[in-house]
Design a protein around this nucleic acid. Structure first.
Lengths: 339, 339
DNA sequence: GTAAATGATGAAACGCGTTTCATGTCAAAC
DNA sequence: GTTTGACATGAAACGCGTTTCATCATTTAC
């Protein structure tokens, strides 16, 4: 790493900053109108005579006027800023979700503030705090750690949107019914003859994980399958985690014959590692991934398609909407070669 | 998609918002001190008697006071907000870069505003505009479309940091010397016996691409290799683009025997497609990827490691630093099985 | 031809902290 | 005993737009 310090001239700049930035008061004087009129021009209010409007516009151009947006924010009590809480920015799932959100934000002239939490609760708190402080108009929580009751306390400060199924609350949400989806996938594996089925999760906690766990519990009860706690493998987020998963099931006396993997990234990691280890897929190990990411298509992984970008879009729209709604999105099984 | 409108009660909330939010004036009255003193307490200024400090703190607690951060911003002329311009949030490269930036932002108590540009110039303009409007204190441009001269015009409004080699300017930057890196990789392929070497790029324009192109030009001149424009394949960003790449070189009468692929994602796509098509790697086609992403490790792709997170870290630090510096990061060839 | 609606415009209040400046107190210094 | 510096505190200015309200000028309506 070569560091080259070219110069240090912001100090000068700082001094220069003291120079007068023109404000609407100056403009008013220049255009010979009141500040109200200048404000009207800036906000395209209709009640301004063309003559004066032009005078103001000229003044604006003449002195290269730039609205101090912070004053606008203070005055309006709005910032056109939406907060997005998400644990990691480098997981494809969240990257895509963010993309969906960002595209809508752009369209509606909002900007996003990112809170990368790493699932640390205090960072979520910070985001809620910013809502209370009016730095953001609303908040999208893509995945949460703190508890719902706490979130509800902040609801009076602005819309909060979640990405999970919430019941009996005043929270907006867009989500996938993970219970149902998981059950469908499990049934599919059962039909295909699998009786020893395991699954991987990101974290153990979180609504989505709980739903999946309860689907699994109901599933093994339904078919009277043995409950093997080893079959639940947590902490699986990345491609690299795939090899761990395989190693851990290889160590079992009765390894699962099929795995429901809640991330295509991890599923891909598993596929790659199995290829390496000469483990035949699907014969020795069947797989269903999640998200239908490009990598799943590329590797021919059977997966559950989640309309991630669409979810992101909805999340954003809910964030700027007064109406509190709950949107359930469909997930779809994409049959490919790993089952 | 099932949409369920639970309720529409923000209207009420909006009315409620009219209720008095306590401000420092109220606090001052309650604590029987001046607003200055309240402000001092809030900002941990030392010159406040313990007695009054406690009185203020009590008032704060009593009425659940929350600072209006927009007023603070207006007053201070700073927002503790750094803008991040990047073309896509769903490419792993930018996801990792963002992660590096975000981690530092957190540590230094800054928040990030994301500008996803899709390489549309007007969106970069917006970011620059926000710097001018003081909505952000500084700006990190991870990849740019607009020209340098324009950026320089905005330099007086706050630090702007780039992620590319810039010469003779007052811009801070952290970058990889892509000319040198590319040349090293080309030389490596040459040593391994390759004479027909192609390469893929994201976009054709951009400093990094230009540097690579000029390295390539110098390379073929140095070894007197034929210049085949078909060997330059652009528009390669995603995993899925890998198959296209292979198809296009298959269509050539004299296909390259080696490819320098400026993204591990694309390299992975190529590897997968080749496996599918029974094209032997590296015998029929050698590959060097870029970034050393997990997927490259997983698939055993020879690649050039770029310290992306580290770059992100530096970018952020430069963004909040007065000093204008230029940091060149090292890239490193990681030999694996695709050459 | 007059009443009512619509168009235009400015003064002033409002949103809310921060910071400077003037003033005052008290203890240490000489 | 007086000077000096550190500690404390409040008034007022400052940062800067938006919005309400009162007022006046025109039109339109009947």
């Amino acid at each position: 790493m070569i560091i080259l310090i070219i110069r240090n001239d912001y100090s000068k700049t700082t001094t220069l900053k003291v120079k007068f930035m023109t404000n609407i008061k100056d403009l008013a004087k220049m255009a010979n109108v009141s500040v109200s009129t200048v404000s009207r021009v800036l906000n395209n209010h209709p009640y301004v005579k063309e003559e004066k409007r032009l005078a103001v516009l000229e003044a604006i151009k003449k002195c290269n006027y730039q609205q101090n947006i912070n004053a606008v924010h203070l005055s309006k009590g709005k910032t056109q800023l939406v907060g997005v809480v998400l644990p990691f920015t480098d997981l494809p799932y969240f990257g895509q979700l963010l993309k969906g959100i960002a595209n809508q934000a752009l369209e509606h002239n909002y900007k996003l503030i990112i809170f990368q939490t790493n699932y640390i609760e205090s960072r979520e708190l910070e985001a809620l705090q910013m809502l209370k402080q009016k730095q953001i108009d609303s908040l999208i929580i893509c995945s949460r750690t703190c508890n719902l009751a706490l979130i509800q306390e902040y609801l009076s400060y602005g819309p909060i949107v979640l990405c999970e199924k919430v019941e009996d609350t005043h929270l907006a949400a867009t989500f996938v019914n993970h219970y149902q989806t998981f059950m469908k996938a499990l049934d599919y594996l059962y039909e295909k003859g699998h009786r020893r089925i395991g699954y991987t999760l990101g974290r153990k906690t979180g609504t989505n994980s709980h739903e999946r766990q309860s689907a699994y519990a109901d599933f093994i009860k339904k078919y009277q399958l043995p409950n093997n706690p080893d079959y639940i493998i947590t902490g699986c987020y990345h491609l690299e985690d795939g090899s761990q998963v395989v190693q851990s099931i290889q160590a079992m006396s009765e390894p699962p014959s099929a795995l429901l993997v809640t991330s295509d990234q991890v599923a891909a990691g598993i596929v790659a590692y199995c290829q390496n280890q000469q483990i035949a897929i699907p014969d020795e190990l069947a797989l269903i991934g999640f998200d239908n990411q490009p990598i799943a298509k590329m590797l021919g992984i059977t997966t559950i398609e989640i309309p991630i970008e669409e979810i992101g879009k909805n999340l954003f729209l809910q964030a700027i909407n007064e109406e509190i709604s709950s949107i359930e999105m469909e997930a779809k099984l994409i049959e490919r070669g790993t089952v």
